[in-house]
Every structure is written in structure tokens, then in C-alpha cells.
């Protein structure tokens, strides 16, 4: 396969990652969110492997496998078990104003393209056109965390943001050094355990996973 074609395919995967980001933004069913998140991880993993092949950066294969294990298999599996244990399988979140959220999301994508312009001009890598998508994924994850009120969805937003960061590292520099990638993966793993514990704490203390109830701590006047 020619390099141009592979670069083209990589861009398609970037587009799919962005698409799943938008899907995450407006999907209201918890379990469907989980599946979308796993898909995003899968696209990310494949894209990383392609970049690794094209750039002959072999440490990216390890990063790709790590992503596959962590973000497509382990974390979604843990979340799946948690969702079953907590019996929130069928929970649907209230999400008003979906068109507005979409519009803000689109604005964020445009903003990301604007922000990464200097990087794209400087970069000589074949992945330079996907840098903006990576930043957009980070921003959309952030937007998701702001708009959602459910603990599980907030965590998925957080993880989607982490996906965007990983993607950013791959597209700007063909990945961070392996030590760093491993360290970051370890941190995410610990974070995954912590939010697992948290779900139970929140559930037992508040009777539901709606973080809207956690509004007690604020400044009194």
C-alpha cells in the first residue's frame, strides 16, 4: 500500500474519532455511551498502529496495543461490570438543548483548527492534519463533562478527553517517549480504579449517581 493511501486512511480514522466524540456528546443512554467510548478507543488504536507503520516508529505499536488493552477492553469491561452492579443499565440521562450543545461542539472544532494552525505550519509529519481533530476531541470531552450531570458520563467524558490527548501526542510528535506513555497509562489505570470506588461511595451516600445533588459545598452569603 502506498504511503498516501495510508495517510488518507489515517485521516478517515481521525474523522471517525471526531464522529464518536460528537456521538458521546449527545448520547443519553449510559450503556450506549460506553459502547461509543469503546469504539473511539478502537479507532484510536488502529490509527496509532497506522501512524506507527508509516513513520516506522515502532514504539507506537506498543502504544497502540496498550490503548487496545486499556481503553477498548479493560476500562469498558470494568465500566460494564460497574453499570451492572449499580443497576443503571437502562438509565437515560436528561439532556436538554441538544442542538445547542452540538453547535457549541462545532464551534469548538473550528476553534481547534484555528488554535493548531501554527503547529500545522511547522510540522512536517504526515499526521499534521489530524492535530486539530485531536485538540477538538479534548475540547469535546471537556464540553461533555460540563454538560453532563451523571457521575458515569462525566467519567466517560474524562476518558474521552484522555483519548484526545493521546491522539494529540501521536499526531504532533509520533507519540511521546515510551516511558511517558506507560506512565500516563498507569495513571489512567489508577484513575479508573478510583472512580470505580467512587461510584459506590456516591451511590451509597446519595442513593443515585446524579452529581447534581452534590451542591452542598458552596459559599454562604
Amino acid at each position: 500500500m502506498s504511503m498516501e493511501l495510508l495517510a488518507q486512511i489515517n485521516k478517515d480514522f481521525a474523522a471517525l474519532i471526531l464522529l464518536t466524540s460528537f456521538g458521546l456528546l449527545v448520547q443519553r443512554r449510559i450503556y450506549a455511551l460506553l459502547l461509543l467510548f469503546a469504539w473511539q478507543g478502537l479507532f484510536l488504536s488502529i490509527s496509532t498502529a497506522i501512524v506507527g507503520f508509516v513513520a516506522e516508529a515502532h514504539h507506537l505499536y506498543i502504544a497502540s496495543i496498550l490503548t487496545l488493552l486499556l481503553k477498548v477492553i479493560l476500562i469498558p469491561y470494568v465500566l460494564h461490570i460497574l453499570i451492572h452492579r449499580l443497576q443503571i443499565y437502562k438509565e437515560v440521562e436528561n439532556l436538554t438543548n441538544i442542538p445547542l450543545i452540538m453547535l457549541i461542539g462545532i464551534a469548538l472544532v473550528i476553534f481547534s483548527y484555528h488554535l493548531t494552525l501554527p503547529i500545522q505550519e511547522l510540522s512536517t509529519l504526515m499526521t499534521r492534519s489530524t492535530i486539530a481533530v485531536a485538540l477538538a476531541t479534548v475540547m469535546l470531552g471537556l464540553l461533555m463533562m460540563i454538560t453532563r450531570r451523571h457521575a458515569v458520563t462525566q467519567v466517560i467524558g474524562f476518558l474521552a478527553m484522555e483519548n484526545g490527548l493521546f491522539f494529540a501526542a501521536t499526531s504532533t510528535t509520533y507519540g511521546m517517549p515510551l516511558v511517558i506513555e506507560l506512565g500516563v497509562a498507569l495513571d489512567i489505570l489508577i484513575a479508573a480504579f478510583i472512580f470505580g470506588i467512587f461510584f459506590f461511595h456516591i451511590r451509597t451516600t446519595f442513593d443515585s449517581l446524579d452529581v447534581e445533588q452534590m451542591m452542598k459545598l458552596k459559599e454562604e452569603d
Binding site: 503547529i119 510540522s123 474524562f158 490527548l165 501526542a169 504532533t172 451516600t205 446519595f206 452534590m214
Partner: peptide, 30 residues
């Protein structure tokens, strides 16, 4: 309840914040 709320806030806000720092580090590496 308040302790859990505080910890959740700490976790989410610092998690988001520190993610921005990682993006900055990526740019620095670039």
C-alpha cells in the same frame, strides 16, 4: 456527603486541569 462531594470535585477538576497540562507537555515535546 460533603466529603464525597469535595473529593469528586477535586478529582474531576484536577483531572481536567492536569489533562490540559499534558497537552501543554505534548506541545513542549513537539
Amino acid at each position: 456527603p460533603t466529603a464525597i462531594e469535595a473529593a469528586w470535585k477535586y478529582f474531576i477538576l484536577c483531572g481536567v486541569g492536569i489533562a490540559q497540562a499534558l497537552f501543554g507537555t505534548v506541545l513542549l515535546y513537539f
